[in-house]
């Protein structure tokens, strides 16, 4: 009974749980840096009509552009390397070396090269999440069974049809997984990047509130950025449900051994 209810309203349930823990901490620690969650929520809703929405929109736009660029380039290169071993031999080791480099440290370089505006922030997020997408796609293409390729060839498929009926549908669920990870990363990176040389963006809003010791506003910003992430996650879930029924069935089949 309770299991069913939780399952049905799981997002709402999670929100309630988080607020409960927050409230507990508020009463336990008795410090101004952890305000009452109810007050923070009220501030959030009050600000949502005005400036908060503009900051949120600026951040969302930056994330969406970064994701779009990363998918376009990351998927193309990932497919190319995954399907052509001889090129992967040359580029694979370089990618492996660059992947763990903390690209966030290059923000000053990017700001000098691409200016203080949106471009440097978008490029920073892009060069971080593009690796996650590229590597996931490349490895999932490599992992495809040879039998599937032979089967579709025996049915007379040309190169484009192999992409359309085999490669692209096969990588789609992996792409969604990579996207979820990328969104999480891109939000935290953007938060960092928006602390510098900008007056728009949720990262700026939060740090600005902190400097002004307006903790309620700071928390309103944190709520906003969290909801932004949740919104993008839900959008990815929605797309996956619509386009990858089979993968969800597969996941369900391997679930709960205990």
């Amino acid at each position: 009974m309770i299991n069913q209810l939780v399952n049905k309203y799981r997002t709402l349930y999670a929100m309630l749980m988080v607020c409960l823990i927050w409230l507990l901490l508020h009463y336990l620690l008795q410090t101004a840096i952890i305000p009452n969650p109810i007050e923070a929520l009220l501030t959030f809703f009050k600000l949502l009509n005005g400036e908060l929405l503009i900051h949120l929109g600026a951040s969302l736009l930056r994330i969406l552009i970064s994701i779009f660029i990363s998918i376009t380039i990351g998927v193309s290169i990932g497919l190319w390397l995954g399907l052509h071993y001889r090129y992967d031999q040359f580029f694979g080791p370089v990618i492996y070396l660059l992947f763990p480099v903390p690209k966030i440290a290059f923000l000053p370089v990017l700001m000098i090269l691409f200016g203080l505006g949106n471009s440097s922030k978008i490029i920073l997020v892009t060069i971080i999440i593009i690796f996650q997408i590229l590597v996931t796609i490349r490895d999932s293409v490599k992992g495809l069974s040879q039998h599937l390729f032979l089967s579709i060839q025996s049915l007379g498929a040309n190169k484009w049809q192999i992409y359309q009926h085999l490669v692209l549908p096969a990588i789609l669920p992996k792409l969604y997984t990579a996207l979820r990870i990328s969104v999480g990363t891109s939000i935290s990176v953007l938060f960092f990047a928006e602390n510098y040389a900008t007056t728009y963006g949720i990262g700026y809003f939060i740090m600005d509130a902190w400097v002004r010791i307006n903790y309620l506003q700071m928390y309103a910003g944190i709520i906003a950025i969290s909801l932004l992430g949740l919104f993008i996650f839900k959008a990815i879930d929605f797309l996956e449900n619509r386009t990858c029924q089979w993968a969800i069935l597969e996941k369900g089949k391997n679930n709960s051994y205990f």
Partner: peptide, 8 residues
């Protein structure tokens, strides 16, 4: 292994 496509 049949060579069926799981997404179809």
């Amino acid at each position: 292994e049949y060579g069926l496509f799981p997404w179809k």
